[in-house]
Design a protein around this nucleic acid. Structure first.
Length: 271
DNA sequence: AAATCTCCCTGTAGGC
DNA sequence: TGCCTACAGGGAGATT
């Protein structure tokens, strides 16, 4: 389940293979993703050169000059560089064939991802225009988060997972950041002190930066641009560890559901 | 405005 | 080659 570090890892993995290169042909085997793959995608993309490979939130933005490919990996999506001779397997939905014999291959078993074509100013796109700041920029500060949290009654975990508040904090990292900051996920966002938010913001930045550094977390079906798994999973303190002892105080970790998402925390260390 | 709910999909885990 | 069911999850869009 790609979170922001995995998406950034993918971006860095594919960039050197596609930047300045021409996409010679596009093969769409399955167009039924989160939104339909545009029917005209092959004709729009074929013959265009990749001008840049960027990311906003969990969207990968591949600028082709005449427009931008906006790709989301959903929960099970991946983009890999493979040899054109490598046969497509089940769930390999779209191929972007590159000048030189390689293919940028999109796979997504659960089809929660998307491949869209944006032919206007990218920042104005409705999917991007209302997003909160990137977590690893100065715009995401404790002053910002504290001010925004006032009078918010939603649980702090839902609050930091809201993409209008800050992007890229998915379920895994929300659980981990709240544990490390010693904040109980069920606390109303508006009741948490400025000092705690300073700690939380620093922790979120630290965790995401660390995860990017080691190449993203690998859970189930994610692999990086080269097909190499990341290594962050080893350092997860609470996610997926409900009932197991807290790494800090040994109490069994509590697991609950918040908004259809699994939350794990320590009743001793998080208050 | 903010909070909550619903839905898309299929591999995996667990029960038997 | 065991079969069946519940569950997981990103996040947009609808609903309250």
């Amino acid at each position: 389940m790609p979170e922001l570090p995995e998406v950034e890892t993918t971006r860095r993995g594919i960039e050197p293979h596609i930047l300045d290169r021409e996409i010679t042909r596009v093969v769409v085997r399955e167009k039924k993703l989160r939104w339909p793959v545009p029917v005209k995608l092959p004709s729009l993309v074929s013959g265009q050169q990749v001008l840049s490979v960027k990311r906003r939130a969990k969207y990968l933005l591949i600028d082709l000059g005449t427009g931008t490919l906006m790709i989301h990996l959903g929960m099970s999506g991946s983009l890999r560089i493979v040899a054109a001779s490598l046969r497509a397997e089940k769930h390999d939905h779209v191929d972007f064939e590159l000048q030189g014999g390689n293919v940028l291959r999109y796979r997504d078993p659960r089809k929660f991802g998307s491949i869209l074509w944006i032919d206007r100013e990218i920042g104005q796109h409705p999917l991007l225009v209302n997003l909160g700041p990137e977590p690893l920029t100065e715009d995401f500060s404790s002053d910002y988060l504290y001010a925004l949290s006032r009078k918010r009654k939603a649980p702090v975990k839902s609050f930091i997972m809201d993409s209008h508040v800050v992007v890229g904090v998915g379920n895994i990292y929300a659980n981990e950041a709240l544990f490390r900051a010693g904040i109980r996920p069920t606390r109303q966002a508006g009741t948490i002190s400025k000092v705690k938010y300073q700690l939380l913001v620093a922790t979120i930045k630290e965790i995401l930066a660390q995860a990017i550094k080691v190449g993203g977390t690998t859970l189930r079906d994610f692999t990086g641009g080269n097909g190499e798994p990341g290594y962050f999973k080893q350092s997860l303190a609470v996610y997926g560890r409900g009932g197991e002892p807290c790494v800090s105080c040994n109490k069994p970790l509590k697991e609950i559901r918040q908004g259809q998402r699994s939350t794990v925390y320590c009743t001793g260390c998080q208050r």
